[in-house]
């Protein structure tokens, strides 16, 4: 069984077609890259998988759960980091992670242990009891990733997770994601327009353009098919082919 199965998923906002008839399957333990320009439909697609935006048409299942009828079951199994978000300014990092853990009904001791683990892993222990309003962009992004991991998700949906991170933080996050997929079998949807990150992390990618999935496959095969060497060239080739 695929971890994620998407069948003809569409979303319209009035006359605007944000996502159009996307068909896609992601295997368990796979890190799948979703690339596309701003407004290509990546965020809407991910939000539909979590039931945050109801689809206009189509179906999808996450770990066998229908996104329309079993949305809370889907959310229980998923971790999510949106592209645009803010952290509650009056909470500390530790309090916020405990708060998110409580939303998953984790027992207190377990929630505290997991919060400690992720705060240590992201080098945030020294700042763990400071209010989030004083956090830098990079620190806040690390807390954002930590909250997505607090429930030990089997599927991680990450929307621009490396934005705001310095090169070292970015490198560490990519290493962590690889480790999660390899050692824990976590399925990861990595949505980004930083194509070098996508290439570093993913074997298979999907390219979205104006709401449509214009290509999907292994990066190496897609590069060979379009006669290009870099991810930038691949993306440009795909977009130009679509325009032509």
């Amino acid at each position: 069984m695929n971890a994620i199965e998407i069948e003809g998923l569409s979303k319209r906002f009035g006359a605007v077609r944000a996502v159009e008839a996307v068909r896609l399957a992601v295997e368990p333990g796979e890190i799948f890259g979703l690339m596309g320009h701003n407004g290509a439909g990546k965020t809407t697609l991910v939000r539909m998988l979590l039931g945050l935006t109801p689809p206009s048409e189509g179906h999808a299942r996450v770990l066998g759960h229908d996104i329309a009828t079993e949305v809370l079951a889907v959310r229980r199994l998923c971790g999510y980091l949106p592209a645009d978000y803010a952290l509650p300014p009056d909470m500390t990092a530790r309090q916020f992670l405990a708060y998110v853990a409580a939303m998953f009904s984790l027992p207190r001791a377990e929630a505290e242990a997991r919060a400690e683990t992720w705060l240590r892993r992201f080098g945030l222990l020294a700042a763990a009891d400071r209010r989030l309003r004083g956090f830098s962009t990079g620190m806040a992004q690390k807390v954002g990733v930590a909250q997505a991991l607090i429930n030990e998700p089997r599927v991680l949906l990450l929307d621009e997770p490396t934005s705001g991170l310095d090169p070292l933080g970015r490198h560490e996050l990519l290493l962590l994601l690889r480790e999660l997929a390899r050692e824990r079998g976590v399925t990861i949807v990595f949505s980004s327009h930083i194509l070098s990150d996508v290439e570093t992390l993913c074997r298979r990618v999907g390219a979205m353009h104006h709401g449509r999935l214009i290509a999907c496959g292994e990066i190496a095969a897609l590069k060979q098919q379009h006669g290009v060497a870099s991810m930038d060239d691949l993306y440009l080739a795909l977009v130009r082919q679509e325009a032509a």
Binding site: L52, R75, Y80, P82, Y85, A86, V100
Partner: peptide, 17 residues
């Protein structure tokens, strides 16, 4: 306010309606 400031997209994805 949580919706307007961007906190809600993070929390609404949790298993609480």
């Amino acid at each position: 306010r949580e919706r307007d400031t961007g906190v809600l997209p993070l929390l609404a994805a949790k298993p609480i309606s």
